[in-house]
Design a binder for these strands. Structure first.
Ligand SMILES: [Mn+2]
Ligand SMILES: [Mn+2]
Ligand SMILES: [Mn+2]
Ligand SMILES: [Mn+2]
Lengths: 225, 225
DNA sequence: GAACGAAATTAGACGAGACTAAGTTTATAG
DNA sequence: CTATAAACTTAGTCTCGTCTAATTTCGTTC
């Protein structure tokens, strides 16, 4: 019924809506999809026509109750595929995003359910993002705190990393940083460089503050359990 | 570079060319693709433009040396996917064709190579069709003899079955007929009904002659080895 | 070898999804 | 409360892959 392109728009709206909790703006969507604004406006009309989004002209769009489960279905496909590619097909986590971004539109729900079963219904994808269940329940979207929100001296556990920049992912995995890794923040410079010490020794790892702000991390304080 | 649709045309031309060894006619292709003739003509122009087919107006098309490997790549994807779906994801062989027919255009060669490796580089797909290697070598396209070519009393081994009719595949597997099954032809009626006896006992299986002609089968005579 | 029917091609249109250029609306500043 | 810049939408065009209707070519028959 829906084209792959329409599905990608719905997915993008879901992500952006999740981030800001406001209506998603045409310009934001255009940038995220890599198209010009008029393309977005025209697509929003089509999606509104089908009751998948509510479009308030000049104000932005949001997913309707019909649109949300469709977006979640695609996100489920995407994240299950990523998990499957890394766990069963020896893909590097830096390579999985593009492959999943294509395949997510073309696998059946049956395919998704079968690989979920093979994987033992995993809760998160290789980058730490939660995988919606077959009933499309999704756990806590995003826990808020990032590496940049902590102080020098804090010990934190990496929760999730952004999955779209392959170069960054390669850099991170080369330096042993995955969801689950425990690190201590050892330096934050005035010019925006964050340095981490890995639990497992080795060299400290430096990250631009912009990157630090894109990586979720939770305090390792007493009340962690 | 090529759209999924273009790939499907190339694949169709390969199949049809393989069957008849002549140039493929516009009408044949139109029927196979489920489109009208002018759609085929216009697509053939585009493919000829890119040197993937040679189009002799009013006579038909054939794949060029550039077009053949592209068709074989898609066929490799298709058959590997079918094998993978049945062997690793518990699909029934009647369900795999449609899923593979979509995914074949969207998986990378890397994905294909990885599942080939996991499967141990299988030579044939679940329906008995040969799988091209990563170097795009393909073994004996089609051995010629079908169930309908044998006499009453002959014992034969099923080599391959057509993979596009899910109902037929369900019927065959319910009656224990797969590539590798050994059967004896026990009756051929004047009104086109072929009856088989399975090696493993049970009831005889009846097939319309049209179906019998679509199933490859090799004599189990002495010189089989 | 002319005529006819089948097969193929050309011509023209449409929907999807993109673009550029031009016109509106909104928000913000003075 | 008006002026202006940014954001958004509208208008019109393009390519892709399809369609129907009209025309051309081929192969065969008389
Ligand atoms: Mn996608
Ligand atoms: Mn991911
Ligand atoms: Mn296909
Ligand atoms: Mn097959």
């Amino acid at each position: 019924m829906l084209s792959a392109i329409m599905e990608d728009y719905l997915k993008a709206i879901y992500y952006l809506q999740d981030e800001t909790d406001e209506r998603v703006r045409t310009s934001t969507l255009a940038e995220h999809m890599g198209v010009e604004q008029p393309s977005v406006t025209s697509m929003m009309k089509k999606l509104a026509e089908r009751d998948l989004v509510h479009h308030e002209p000049y104000k932005g769009v949001e997913l309707t109750d019909t649109g949300i489960p469709i977006a979640l279905e695609i996100i489920r496909h995407h994240r299950l595929l990523e998990r499957y590619l890394t766990d069963h097909l020896e893909y590097d986590w830096a390579e999985v995003h593009d492959e999943a971004d294509r395949l997510e539109h073309h696998i059946s729900n049956q395919f998704a359910d079968r690989i979920a079963e093979q994987l033992g219904d995993p809760a998160v994808d290789p980058h730490g993002d939660p995988i919606p269940t077959a009933e499309l329940d999704i756990s806590a979207p995003k826990c808020g705190e990032t590496l940049a929100d902590h102080q020098v001296g804090d010990s934190v556990r990496i929760e999730r990393v952004p999955d779209e920049d392959a170069d960054l992912l390669r850099y991170l995995s080369e330096h042993g940083i995955h969801p689950g890794t425990e690190v201590e923040i050892v330096e934050v410079t005035s010019f925006g460089m964050v340095t981490l010490d890995l639990d497992g020794g080795d060299e400290p790892v430096a990250l631009p503050e912009k990157v630090a702000r894109s990586i979720s991390a939770q305090s390792l304080s007493e009340d962690t359990s």
